[in-house]
Amino acid sequence: MRRKQWSGHGAQAVQHYLVHPRHLAGGGDLRHATEFLRASGWRDRSKARGPLVFDSPDRTVRVGYDPFIQPGGWTITGKPTAHQDAWHATFTRQTPVEIVSGFTDALTRPRSAHAPHVWAPLQQQGWTTERAPQFTATSPDGDAFVRFHQSGPGQAHWFAGARTEHGRTWDAMFTATTPMHLLQAFTTALADPQPVMRPRGHVPLSDRVRTTSVSVLPHELSAWQQARLTSARAATWARASGASARRAAFPGPYAPAGGARQRR
């Protein structure tokens, strides 16, 4: 029997669920994060049957996902540069990939000129904050939190996580040197009130999870995924074109447009 082409025509709709709140939606499809990195020009250095590994174009940041160790999950590491100390972030396996990608997507974009505010996205969505004993923000349902913890001089970390009636579902940790704009991207994705989609059989069993059943055609899923990747490729191309234009406009004192440099 001949296989049909991936066109979606004549294909049957597949049952999916919109899951709310997103912080209790479970891990999701890793490709939501990794394919965006690939489309943004990151190098895939993963080995067959091994952990996923992606390096930034300038080789200063590495994103990895390893399900073969305990507790397993995401590890993001930034090397020290002239303007940034080394930093480290981790997400356990059941962290919703849409929340992880809030952080990893931000790695592919230029840093905003505006000063970042980690707590603002949470407060705008009704998260409550308290300052003692550590500065903590808690979701309206009480099942997710973000905390800045400092046990002593030079011993500070950011923590986040979520729980259900069955216990803790995921944890995230960020060193104090993690760039603030990345932390704001994380809290923005965490506090986003929009539900996330999960296929049948991939919705966590919890009384605290609310779902809406939807029927989705395969070509609709493909179109949504491609739109996200197209935006990543377009942004990457625009940055590369802008950089090329700036180099052409300002060749520098040692590359005169007229050829060899003349001596006086």
Rank of each mutant, 00 (worst) to 15 (best):
M1D: 03
Q5M: 08
W6H: 12
V14N: 00
V14C: 05
H16K: 03
L18C: 02
G27F: 05
G27R: 15
D29C: 01
A33G: 13
E35F: 14
W42D: 13
R45A: 12
R49L: 11
L52M: 12
D58S: 12
I69Y: 01
I69T: 13
Q70A: 14
G72H: 10
T75N: 11
G78E: 14
K79I: 02
P80I: 10
W87T: 10
W87F: 13
F103S: 08
T104A: 08
T104Y: 04
T104H: 08
T108R: 06
P110F: 00
R111S: 14
A113I: 05
P116H: 07
H117D: 15
W119E: 10
Q124D: 13
W127D: 06
R131C: 00
T136P: 03
T138N: 02
P140R: 07
P140W: 08
D143G: 08
F148R: 12
Q155P: 00
H157D: 13
H157S: 12
F159K: 07
R163Q: 15
T164E: 04
W170V: 02
W170F: 08
A172I: 03
T175V: 02
T187W: 06
L190F: 00
D192T: 02
P195M: 03
P204Y: 14
V209A: 02
R210M: 09
R210P: 00
E220D: 00
L221W: 05
A232Y: 06
W237E: 15
S241Y: 03
P253R: 08
A260I: 09
R263G: 03
